[in-house]
């Protein structure tokens, strides 16, 4: 009964847009039409997607992009956290500097990197030229463009993983780490056998959060390459936005969105399942300990 207002708000704020999108994915809908005027086409949009090579290419680009950036960000983020997890003077300032990229609006990040990658005036190519090397087609060659957007994303999002890992590291039981030093563990062995296993629950949630985010990446790539050259950096979100605004196929765009949504839901379910598993295990442990007393 008391949940009624909350349920109503939830229904309007959450379910209405999603329901609208699902409904729209069954329509042949042009932006100049009102939704009521659009024709019902059943599964046609979805069937079209299945046979749309460009859509599959975008999906593949997205999956590659997400898995590469998240893997590299995890390595750099966790590594940085391990290195900076100590009490040296000025460390708090250093940590603050490290998390700055995350606070910049993605559009600005995109613009910034686009200028840095610029073939003539960009800092990278100017430096290369002044050192006597050939310039690199950062944004105009497919493989380089893909690598370039990955670098920009890593630059922006490694701090996110860094912060969470650092928090996880600093909440580890200090005495367990000291005990491992007494037991003869070297620095690497402490990381491998004690720190990483104890951080694992946080790391898994971090990976899933970052994956969900990486699958939705749009602004930085939109500004930097707008999906080009060719389709080499056209991630799903970009494809969706282009389908809706350039190709004026709202129904198809909605169907794509649903496909992406489904993918993300899958990740969320994995995350949810994982948290549930953790809770269950913790409850079991607690119970076992209590029976003992």
């Amino acid at each position: 009964m008391f949940l009624a207002p909350a349920a109503a708000i939830l229904a309007i704020a959450l379910l209405y847009p999603i329901g609208y999108m699902i409904y729209a994915s069954f329509l042949d809908w042009n932006p100049s039409q009102r939704i009521g005027e659009a024709d019902w086409v059943g599964m046609r949009n979805y069937l079209k997607l299945l046979n749309d090579a460009a859509f599959w290419e975008s999906t593949w680009v997205t999956v590659r992009f997400a898995s590469i950036v998240v893997t590299l960000e995890m390595i750099f983020g966790v590594g940085l956290a391990m290195i900076l997890d100590r009490n040296l003077r000025g460390m708090s300032i250093l940590r603050t500097i490290f998390i700055l990229p995350m606070m910049i609006a993605p559009i600005v990040v995109g613009l910034m990197w686009r200028y840095m990658y610029h073939p003539q005036v960009g800092i990278f190519n100017r430096t290369l030229k002044s050192l006597g090397f050939d310039t690199i087609p950062f944004l105009s060659e497919s493989n380089w463009a893909f690598a370039s957007v990955i670098i920009a994303d890593i630059w922006q999002w490694t701090p996110f993983i860094f912060i969470l890992s650092l928090a996880a590291l600093q909440s580890l039981p200090q005495s367990a780490i000291e005990a491992s030093r007494i037991d003869g563990a070297s620095g690497w062995q402490q990381v491998l056998y004690i720190k990483l296993p104890l951080m694992l629950p946080v790391l898994i949630v971090t990976v899933l959060l970052r994956l969900i985010d990486a699958f939705k990446v749009l602004e930085v790539i939109l500004v930097m390459t707008n999906g080009g050259p060719g389709l080499s950096t056209e991630v799903l979100a970009l494809r969706i936005s282009r389908t809706a605004s350039e190709f004026r196929e709202l129904g198809e765009a909605a169907a794509m969105s649903n496909a992406l949504l489904f993918l993300l839901m899958l990740l969320t379910v994995i995350m949810f399942g994982y948290t549930k598993l953790q809770e269950k295990r913790a409850a079991k442990l607690r119970q076992a300990a209590q029976e003992e007393i």
């Binding site: 367990a176 037991d183 563990a185 056998y193």
Partner: peptide, 26 residues
Amino acid sequence: LALVFQDYALYPHMNVAKNMSFALRL
């Protein structure tokens, strides 16, 4: 030397046997 800590400092992710054998395994 070996040290017994006030809060025991056991490795939470290892079982009793693994906890006790950690130094020997290293």
